[in-house]
Design a protein around this nucleic acid. Structure first.
Lengths: 249, 249
DNA sequence: CGGCATGTTGACCATATTCAATTGAAGTGG
DNA sequence: CCACTTCAATTGAATATGGTCAACATGCCG
């Protein structure tokens, strides 16, 4: 068994053959260590590499003209970062660490070659992107339609689920984000985050304090946030080589 | 020259070889016609096909537990729909038409095979997805950080740009969306859309009425919305066969 | 004509922002 | 060890942005 974060993560939602797992290992050869709060990549900088997360919490973000910041994604060990930037000249989003982190850079130029050499890798990268995109559209619905309270609940459920897939404790976990960062993620202000955090606690749903989150009532959290876990069910047609698929489906 | 919408669209931001263009043509073989306001695909239904838009305006959307609706994307001729759903059992978003539309369904199962047969197609699909994702993250920043006024301006600039790439008139175009639909797209209420529409008109930026949009002051629109067109610059390394690339870059 | 969808307007209210002051914890340097 | 700074969080008051509700206008279509 490989100890690849990438493969271990991906396997939670989708079978990965040993042959494919080996190919993915190439993405995790080189390691780079970052301090908490470090800037990994500037928005609009020339992007050479994509990264896989080996350990730590990482954020991608967009900076707006007026100094505002939107945190786009939270990336956890086993996730890929910057895949979507690969075809572009410039990185479309910035990358920064939330905790100490180990990232594995991989030249995006090399990825283009891999696509031709190993069609399976292409399919897997495509699946990774679809997965990431699924989370993005959930986020758009979240930001567009829910109030601060609902957004926070949704965020907690999503996190809880992602950590559970990684085998971490579901009901009590480290949440290494300041209220400022939560605010930039949820699209509300720092101050309001504090108020909503208190409400959620008073309602007995969850407690967030000292970079620690405790889920008290997952069921009600799911209800108030309307979480839809459809994006965890992948289709085997994509996971297996076409010639090995059962016919007629 | 092919009359493929798909290729024509893609070529605006990225070279496509004639050989690749031919491969993409396969995606537009079958045609299906839809009336305005038709439902093409339900959210969470089993998804068999993806679609390319041959003509008309199309929306993808998410329905929330409490009956709210978030319009996720506006798709125009030459765009692909449902690419991200391909690896999943269920469609992650619904699809509906805004105008009369002609869509070309393509079995997603067949797409998986294409990935193995034609690595170039895989690369192009990956690029399409990156492009779509670039628009999604712009949208997240838009929803999270800007007020209603800014969101509307940003939307207009994005539309204007996309239509311009298609060779349509940039300053006056058909905008076949009701205020209700604009509201669901921008994450504000119907009533408030009306108010903001009037403000934007009074400020001399743009006029939207009778399903028609007129841009009066693109420069100021861009300023107030902070539009970032970085996602229009693709990297040749992805467009051309690896063996034909200039070396050493 | 009547019914339905769309858009408009006004009054009122709620959610969230802004601004300002304060506290506590952690880190730095004398 | 103590001042001093910085950063994160908390609180309150005033304000603004946007939501809700209801009434009304308009145009379209059967």
């Amino acid at each position: 068994m490989t100890q690849s974060c990438l493969v271990a993560n991906f396997r939670k939602i989708n079978p990965v053959s040993d042959r494919d797992a080996e190919l993915l290992l190439a993405l995790e050869k080189e390691e780079r260590h970052f301090a908490p709060g470090a800037l990994v990549q500037d928005q609009n900088s020339e992007s050479r590499d994509l990264f896989s997360v080996k350990s730590g919490w990482v954020q991608t973000f967009a900076l707006l003209e007026d100094g505002k910041r939107q945190i786009l994604e939270i990336k956890l060990p086993g996730d890929l970062i910057g895949l979507r930037d690969a075809p572009f000249h410039e990185a479309l989003s910035g990358i920064g660490t939330l905790t100490e982190a180990v990232l594995c850079p991989f030249p995006k130029r090399r990825l283009a070659e891999l696509f031709d050499e190993a069609p399976h890798v292409a399919r897997m990268m495509f699946m990774f992107e679809s997965w990431a995109q699924a989370i993005l559209i959930e986020r758009i619905a979240n930001l567009g339609q829910r109030d601060a309270y609902g957004r926070l609940c949704h965020f907690l459920v999503e996190l809880q689920l992602r950590l559970r897939l990684r085998g971490e404790d579901e009901s009590h976990f480290r949440l290494p984000m300041t209220q400022r960062q939560l605010a930039d993620y949820l699209g509300i202000t720092e101050v309001h985050v504090g108020r909503v955090l208190r409400q959620v606690k008073d309602d007995g749903l969850a407690t967030i304090a000292d970079r620690q989150a405790t889920i008290h009532d997952l069921k009600r959290l799911r209800e108030t946030s309307g979480f839809n876990p459809a994006y965890l069910q992948m289709d085997d047609a994509w996971a297996l080589p076409t010639d090995r698929l059962p016919s007629g489906r």
